[in-house]
Amino acid sequence: MPKMKSNSGAKKRFKVTGSGKIKRKKAYKRHILTKKSSKTKRQLGKDTLVDKADEKSIKKQIPYKF
């Protein structure tokens, strides 16, 4: 059987932690930053985990990372 294709966009956006959870970056930190508070910008810089409801579809897109 041939290899499955990974989704290139998903490969670049998600990382898998040691325990098998999926990490992602937060949105809204690219531009229009002048009206956002320092606290908001600082919190947007941190990584967060993907919601449980979305994990299944992301795991299908990056099959060889698990």
Rank of each mutant, 00 (worst) to 15 (best):
M1F: 00
P2F: 01
P2E: 09
P2H: 03
P2G: 11
K3N: 06
K3W: 00
M4A: 15
K5W: 06
K5Y: 05
S6Y: 11
S6D: 07
S6E: 13
S6A: 14
S8D: 15
G9D: 10
G9V: 05
G9C: 09
A10C: 13
A10P: 02
K11L: 15
K12R: 15
R13I: 03
R13E: 06
R13Q: 08
R13D: 03
R13K: 11
F14W: 07
K15W: 00
K15F: 00
K15V: 00
K15I: 00
V16A: 05
V16M: 12
V16Y: 03
T17L: 10
G18A: 09
G20E: 02
G20N: 04
G20L: 10
K21W: 10
K21F: 05
K21M: 10
K21E: 15
K21R: 14
I22A: 02
K23R: 12
K23Q: 12
K23N: 06
K23A: 08
R24N: 13
K25Q: 13
K25E: 14
K25P: 12
K25S: 13
K26V: 07
K26Q: 15
A27H: 03
A27N: 06
A27Y: 03
A27R: 01
A27M: 11
K29H: 07
K29I: 08
K29W: 05
K29T: 01
R30Q: 05
R30I: 09
R30A: 13
R30K: 11
H31W: 08
I32L: 13
L33T: 12
T34P: 01
T34W: 04
K35A: 10
K35M: 11
K36A: 08
K36Q: 14
K36P: 14
K36D: 15
K36Y: 14
S37L: 02
S37N: 05
S37V: 02
S38Q: 11
S38T: 12
S38N: 12
K39D: 14
K39P: 11
K39Q: 15
T40Q: 13
T40A: 08
K41V: 06
K41P: 10
K41D: 12
R42Y: 12
R42C: 13
Q43T: 06
L44W: 01
G45P: 02
G45Y: 00
G45Q: 07
K46D: 00
K46C: 01
K46I: 01
D47S: 06
D47Y: 00
D47Q: 07
T48W: 00
T48M: 09
T48H: 00
L49R: 01
L49V: 02
L49K: 01
L49I: 04
L49S: 04
L49T: 04
D51E: 10
D51W: 04
A53L: 04
A53W: 04
D54I: 09
D54A: 13
E55T: 03
K56E: 15
S57C: 11
S57Y: 14
S57D: 08
S57P: 09
I58S: 06
I58A: 08
K59V: 04
K59R: 15
K59C: 06
K60W: 12
Q61K: 15
P63Y: 09
P63R: 14
P63I: 05
Y64Q: 07
Y64P: 09
K65R: 14
